[in-house]
């Protein structure tokens, strides 16, 4: 009886010892991704304090983060972020709505794709920002202009990826559908579109990043009085460096969050990808 109790007591003690060790390991693992940002902030702080760089060029991280937080919590920076987000999403939706069906159609007809491949590749390789003057001629200094040029840059990426997704569809799945008696239309609807989805989503994710880049650039150089691009440029011109850094960080936060949201949507829809 006594032997048994000491035995179970020992086991319990061992379990107690093992438990915190396991927890510590898990916590360490969860904290690892935070190491990079902490090191960056530390380096920033040291650099700002060292005096090597004039405070007018580099404010410390804490004042900057305070400015960012205050700005995002109902300040002007929030309006700018929302404006940039709205333009980016408008451009993205236009690119997706036009680009996905067009890309899938082009991809399912190899001859059609080959005949426009050069045009797509050429303009895909042309920085969209180089086209801003052209778009200025067409749309003038308007809000539509910023959305239009971002949509243009994003559209080509969506078309290209959707077309490649279809062209690289697993031949055997198409054969399986055909042998079961699927018409060309059913093969397209039930197999090709689905097969193109993983690659199409790569395109959509890249396209939203591209749209954000172009919108921010357009906000800087196409007459604008809101948006993050405007906020960065304006803060720089009035030498409000803290606000400038805060606005830059805000574009980063926006880009990062957009990417995460799209990854989550992708994982939900293309659940079979990579399995």
């Amino acid at each position: 009886m006594e032997v048994e109790s000491t035995d179970s007591g020992r086991r319990r003690k061992a379990a107690r010892r093992a438990w915190p060790r396991l927890r510590a390991g898990q916590v360490k693992h969860a904290l690892l991704p935070l190491l990079g940002p902490v090191l960056l902030l530390l380096a920033w702080e040291l650099l700002a304090r060292s005096g090597w760089i004039k405070p007018i060029l580099l404010p410390g991280p804490w004042p900057t983060l305070q400015t960012l937080a205050a700005g995002l919590a109902g300040g002007a920076l929030m309006t700018d972020t929302l404006m940039t987000l709205m333009r980016t999403l408008q451009a993205f939706v236009i690119a997706a709505v036009l680009g996905l069906p067009l890309g899938v159609l082009l991809g399912s007809n190899v001859n059609a794709y080959r005949s426009v491949e050069f045009v797509i590749d050429f303009f895909r390789s042309t920085p969209a920002s180089a086209m801003i003057p052209l778009f200025l001629l067409i749309f003038g200094v308007s809000d539509i202009n910023k959305v239009a040029i971002a949509a243009f840059g994003a559209l080509l990426i969506v078309i290209f990826n959707a077309a490649y997704g279809v062209m690289n569809a697993r031949k055997q799945r198409i054969m399986a559908a055909r042998v079961m008696g699927a018409s060309r239309w059913r093969v397209f609807r039930d197999v090709l579109i689905w097969e193109s989805l993983p690659q199409s989503f790569v395109g959509l994710r890249t396209a939203v990043s591209m749209a954000l880049v172009v919108v921010v650039v357009a906000e800087m150089f196409i007459g604008s009085n809101n948006g993050l691009g405007y906020a960065v440029l304006n803060a720089q011109q009035v030498l409000n460096v803290r606000l400038m850094y805060a606005a830059i960080l805000a574009t980063g936060v926006l880009g990062y969050l957009l990417n995460i949201v799209f990854l989550l949507i992708e994982r939900l829809i293309v659940h079979w990808n990579g399995r």
Binding site: R170, Q172, R173, M175, A176, A177, V179, M180, G181, D190, V191, W194, L197, H271, W272, R275
Partner: peptide
């Protein structure tokens, strides 16, 4: 009816298995 060697690329992964069987 056709049964492929490579079942991984014969079934449609976007459909549940039951829907795959019902597809034809």
């Amino acid at each position: 009816g056709y049964v492929f060697q490579n079942y991984r690329e014969a079934l449609f992964p976007w459909m549940r298995t039951l829907d795959n069987i019902a597809y034809p």
